[in-house]
């Protein structure tokens, strides 16, 4: 016997894809198309001077753009001055360095902040609003703000009684970028951790205390294991975010410091290369994409986090 709800069910099963497809089509256009276009362009030559002749580029050039970045080879010879190939590996290292240091600091400070915010005291709501302030300030403004504070006569040198040219030195400019990034994004990590921490029943801590555990022991044995899932998700999100970092080093230090590119990340290098040729820039952005994708895959495997699974539990 055909129930009237059968036709409704049938309609609903067709409605789903209909509602989802505009989003998928748009994402294919603004993400899928560029990725494929970059891949195609990365195999085409850029305009250049060859044997004294100017070539307009555009012809198929195999993997030469990739060789330019990976082994600094320009048509079998070493690259002429002014090409950016020799900055590739330092940019990779700088980007990875920023990632490891900022994410470690964010997790440590974020945990401390979450522990404090999880205490029951008057003004908790206000404190949560306060930590959202760095999150709400646009990154470009954050960069200018720290640029001002790190100025030679700025408040940081005054407070330290130091005379450091923060944005000039190789390490001082890196430290400046790291401090600004940690300031801006730690609140996000802290709030993610707090969401899980506030769900831990107080009875657990009470029981641990009666059994003679110190506050630090309870933190290690109760808090840390129970916020581990949130911690791993936060680490994955933050790692992927720092790997593509651009705004802060681009505005705060212009990618410079030390020999002139101590804070040049992969994103900054790509933007510079766009002025020099699309082929090289496409190869570089493809390499960056592969690096980030690889790290994402490795992290998700290593942590065994299933980002989608938890989503589906709440769904009918």
């Amino acid at each position: 016997m055909a129930k009237p709800s059968d036709t409704t069910a049938h309609r609903r099963s067709r409605l789903g894809p209909l509602l989802v497809s505009p989003s998928l089509v748009l994402l294919a256009a603004v993400i899928g198309y560029p990725v494929v276009a970059a891949l195609v362009t990365s195999f085409r030559a850029d305009p250049s001077l060859k044997d004294g002749f100017f070539t307009t580029g555009g012809e198929f050039s195999g993997v030469s753009n990739y060789l330019h970045w990976l082994v600094q080879s320009c048509g079998g010879t070493s690259c002429p001055a002014g090409t950016l190939g020799d900055q590739f590996w330092t940019s990779v290292l700088v980007t990875l360095f920023f990632t490891v240091v900022t994410v470690s600091l964010e997790v440590l400070i974020g945990l401390l902040m979450a522990v404090v915010m999880n205490q029951a005291f008057a003004g908790r709501g206000l404190l949560r609003a306060v930590v959202l302030v760095p999150w709400a300030i646009p990154t470009a403004v954050t960069a200018k703000l720290w640029f001002f504070m790190f100025a030679y006569d700025g408040i940081i040198n005054r407070a330290l009684g130091a005379h450091i040219l923060w944005t000039d030195g190789a390490w001082s400019s890196r430290v400046a970028v790291i401090i600004a990034d940690v300031w801006k994004t730690t609140p996000f990590v802290a709030l993610l951790l707090l969401a899980d921490m506030s769900g831990i029943p107080g009875g657990l801590y009470e029981a641990a205390r009666i059994d003679g555990a110190s506050a630090f022991q309870s933190f290690l044995r109760i808090t840390l294991p129970l916020v581990r899932p949130a911690l791993l998700v936060a680490v994955v999100f933050r790692v992927l975010d720092v790997l593509r970092i651009y705004d802060l080093p681009a505005i705060l230090t212009q990618g410079g410091g030390g020999d002139g590119h101590a804070t040049t990340t992969l994103s900054i290098l790509t933007v510079r290369q766009i002025q020099q040729g699309y082929g090289g820039a496409s190869a570089l952005s493809t390499l960056t994409f592969v690096l980030i994708f690889g790290v994402a895959l490795a992290l998700v495997r290593a942590f065994r986090v299933n980002l989608v699974q938890s989503e589906q539990h709440g769904m009918s």
Binding site: L240, D241, I292
Partner: peptide, 10 residues
């Protein structure tokens, strides 16, 4: 989580 820089050139 897609990096914006990867769509910039195209």
């Amino acid at each position: 989580m897609f990096p914006g820089v990867a769509i910039l050139t195209p």
